[in-house]
Amino acid sequence: MARKITYQQAINEAIDQEMARDENIVLMGEDVVGGSGSDGEMDAWGGVLGVTKGLYGKYGDRIMDTPISESGFVGAAVGAAASGLRPICELMFIDFMGVCFDQIFNQAAKFRYMFGGKAETPVVIRTMYGAGFRAAAQHSQCLYPLFTHIPGLKVVLPSSPYDVKGLLIQAIRDNDPVIFCEHKVLYTMEGDVPEESYTIPFGEANIVREGDDVTIVAFGRMVQQALKAATALAKEGISCEVIDPRTTSPLDEDSILESVENTGRLVVVDEASPRCGMAADISALVARKGFSSLKAPIEVVTPPHTPVPFAGKLEDLYVPNPDKIAAAVRATAGYNA
């Protein structure tokens, strides 16, 4: 597995390989081609950050620009999924869920259950999330806990190039609606990615690093931050196990509980807002089902409960970083040690 490509290239490759395999797959979104109807070039953008660049040349009208009307095209993707296609729909920023949420949570998420198991809705909604681009309050949020709250949706947070390809292929082949959350800061991350198509099952956490003293559960981009903290802490003699759940729904509860059973100490790192988010959810899980294993209070590392600020200095203060994670680990490791 020597070939290294970026997270962004891995997404493109996953879509490419799947579209070559199954002609029922279509891709739609705002400027996923770029140039539709204009007098200039087609595939001018290939997505706002170029993630889908080049696919139009291979798949023509299966790659579709949409008007800027998220309810319209997200709903169309959902309806198409219930009618035999397997659409991949790009919601450019997760923040835009506000203008199309009904089609996701009242329609897509409900069909299978509400129609007595007689409907399948194989739609993937790819969406970009997270802070770090100085993109301010309406283009930087981590709203995946809101999707995680909705039964019937699967929610995926890939943290590496290898994972993003395997999880995206899994998402495309899944018969349920999948919210596929891509952290914009990770797009340039490089890593080993097999050229062949492969899948990673949903609901299986990745034990990214093994350790005995403290369990760190981290999501999405925070996995890399947690690993940096763990490396630094190893030099202090604190051995951290880093768990990346990969999917918030379904959630691999067992891997988290088993790790805490071994370490007795838990730090949860999440870039989403602290209230009703993954940090609160994982804390509740371990408090409820792993109480007897705990040797110290659970620590959480999240942003403050504020909108994402614009100014670089403020945004850097907002996002959890390895130092803050390490401090939390030290706090829990030092409790009654």
Partner: peptide, 26 residues
């Protein structure tokens, strides 16, 4: 709803259906 007969569902959300039929039409 009865997708076998092409019935995509009554809908509890006013205005919920039209985006869906765009997908069905696609």
């Amino acid at each position: 709803a009865d997708l076998d007969t092409g019935m995509m569902g009554a809908n509890g959300i006013v205005g919920g259906g039209p985006p869906l039929v765009c997908g069905a039409a696609l």
